[in-house]
């Protein structure tokens, strides 16, 4: 077992001449709630895109629980244990809430069922579908979405769509959960509820969570450690309260 759940070593990516992320060294311990903050355009979402396999890094590498995942495909990285949500919600809008979660369960080994078994509706198909449905309900219950399970995802209110994205990501049974601005567009009471949910997920599933957020109240409220990015470079790293009071960081956010 590795010491860190996620470790990035000199991770960097450039698009043409633009160095979007450079020499990023994240060390995230197991069960940690870790924040990634920085002004707009600092490269935070790019970091997420690298560690979920959407972009291939130009330099450096990253390890999940000691295993190098650089260069692997998106779905393989997801199987290995990294799941994410999106800054702009990307649910399967025309599918019901519960089906969204069931897509997340798609690759869980206990629900393996080849297309042939399904096509000819063998008994295994029905038992596996039923188990999946139960499991999906269980996950929805955590997020108080069970009542809405048969609604279309696009008809959910915004706050609930955000929650459903987290539920869908959790269904893929990750070791590391990446949340891209989970509180964006939420009102203060929704944000408060979200903070409780994130903490609950961490405790209940022993989850390691890395989140990008602009809402400093949320970051200081739940993150134990943070890294600040500015123009693709690491500006500061450490305990949340120390970092957020660091004059350099304040300068990056507010200017001189």
């Amino acid at each position: 077992m590795a010491e860190y759940m996620l470790e990035t070593k000199n991770l960097g990516i450039s698009f043409g001449g633009l160095k979007a992320v450079q020499e990023l060294n994240l060390k995230i311990k197991k069960k940690e709630l870790y924040g990634l903050v920085g002004p707009n355009g600092a490269g935070k979402t790019t970091v997420f895109n690298i560690i979920t396999g959407v972009y291939k890094p130009t330099t450096g590498t990253f390890l999940l629980d000691g295993e190098e995942l650089k260069g692997k495909k998106e779905e393989v990285i997801n199987h290995k244990g990294i799941a994410r949500t999106f800054q702009n919600i990307r649910l399967f809008n025309n599918m019901s809430v519960i089906r969204n979660v069931m897509v997340g369960l798609h690759n869980q080994p206990e629900f393996r069922c080849d297309p042939f078994t399904s096509m000819f509706r063998l008994p295994k198909h029905f038992s596996s579908e039923k188990e999946m449905r139960e499991k999906a309900k269980e996950i929805l219950r955590i997020f108080n979405l069970e009542e809405e399970r048969n609604n279309l995802a696009c008809n959910l209110p915004y706050g609930k769509q955000r929650k459903l994205e987290i539920a869908r990501a959790l269904a893929t049974n990750p070791k590391l959960l990446l949340l891209d601005e989970p509180a964006a567009g939420m009102n203060p009471s929704e944000t408060q509820e979200l903070m409780d949910t994130i903490r609950f997920v961490r405790d209940e599933f022993d989850m390691t969570i890395l989140l990008i957020e602009h809402d400093m109240k949320l970051v200081s409220g739940i993150c134990e450690e943070v890294t600040v990015l500015n123009f693709g470079q690491e500006l500061a790293q450490g305990k949340t309260s120390d970092v957020l009071n660091n004059p350099e960081v304040i300068k990056a956010y507010l200017g001189d």
Partner: peptide, 16 residues
Amino acid sequence: LAVSEDKGAAQLMGVN
């Protein structure tokens, strides 16, 4: 269905 709605998101949710 998921792939037809959003290929990228489906892939990141572990769909091959």
